[in-house]
């Protein structure tokens, strides 16, 4: 079953590439506008050893990682606090409901004016965007704590703090990690958007803009392939972490793998 799945997937990818290649070679698709699949793949391979692109990619990853880390450090405690203090949560909910849908990208022009330096601006924007999934999932995780487990602890005479540390946090942990995983992909999108919008010293977005102004569509696509691969790897790692760390969670929730 698994083998046939891998084979089918490979066939699917190959067919798409071959069709694109043939369309380009037979003139069905204008290669001036849409370069050959082989050109793009060769370009992507070339980027892997292109020091300029590697510098850009690491700049993006740096902003992304920094923003995600700060967001997690801010949002998890905030989520725990709100999740365990219902009154505070009710009070702050309308603010959250209003702030959350503001597209973080829309803050870029404002933060550009306010923040000290380009790097700080990007990280700020990423933090703003990445906070919400972590915050909301943490709160949700604390709400989801099994009341029986909570009552068991209470019955043994543990105080609120002990219940929080021993029951609420461990059972909320998988939700937190899910939030971090969602935030990770949002953060990557936002980091690259910020680069596209405001340029700066480096980044995949900056590279793509430069390639675009040189009309190198093949390099734009090649860089896009790398952006996709980075997203894919990050997501796969976090999914794996979730499954590895919280196997009991999947078992309890009956999640189909």
């Amino acid at each position: 079953m698994i083998v046939s799945k891998v084979v089918r997937g490979a066939v699917g990818v190959a067919v798409l590439l071959v069709v694109a290649e043939i369309a380009g070679r037979t003139g069905l698709m204008d290669t001036q506008i849409m370069p050959l699949a082989s050109t793009v793949l060769a370009g992507a391979a070339g980027l892997a050893v292109d020091s300029e692109f590697l510098h850009d990619a690491s700049a993006t990853v740096e902003v992304w990682a920094e923003g995600l880390l700060v967001a997690t450090l801010l949002a998890v405690p905030a989520g725990v606090l709100l999740g365990s203090l219902p009154k505070v949560e009710i009070g702050l909910r309308p603010l959250i409901e209003f702030l959350r849908p503001i597209p973080s990208i829309a803050l870029i022009p404002l933060v550009t004016l306010i923040a000290a330096g380009d790097g700080a601006m990007k990280v700020t924007i990423v933090v703003y965007a990445a906070c919400w999934p972590v915050l909301v999932n943490t709160m949700y995780g604390l709400h989801d704590v099994d009341p029986v487990a909570r009552d068991t602890m209470r019955a043994f005479g543990f105080g609120r703090l002990a219940v929080l540390l021993r029951v609420a946090l461990p059972s909320a942990a998988p939700f937190v990690l899910t939030g971090v995983r969602l935030a990770a992909s949002v953060a990557l999108v936002v980091a690259i958007s910020a680069e596209l919008l405001s340029g700066g010293a480096g980044g995949i977005g900056v590279y793509i803009i430069k390639a675009g102004s040189g009309y190198r569509i093949d390099l734009m696509l090649a860089a896009t392939v790398w952006a996709g691969l980075i997203g894919l790897v990050v997501n796969a790692l976090l999914v794996r972490a979730e499954r590895g760390l919280f196997r009991w969670h999947a078992a309890r929730a009956g999640v189909a793998q």
Partner: peptide, 10 residues
């Protein structure tokens, strides 16, 4: 997995 804004220049 491709961040959609990446495609805007394209």
């Amino acid at each position: 997995a491709i961040p959609p804004p990446t495609l805007i220049p394209l």
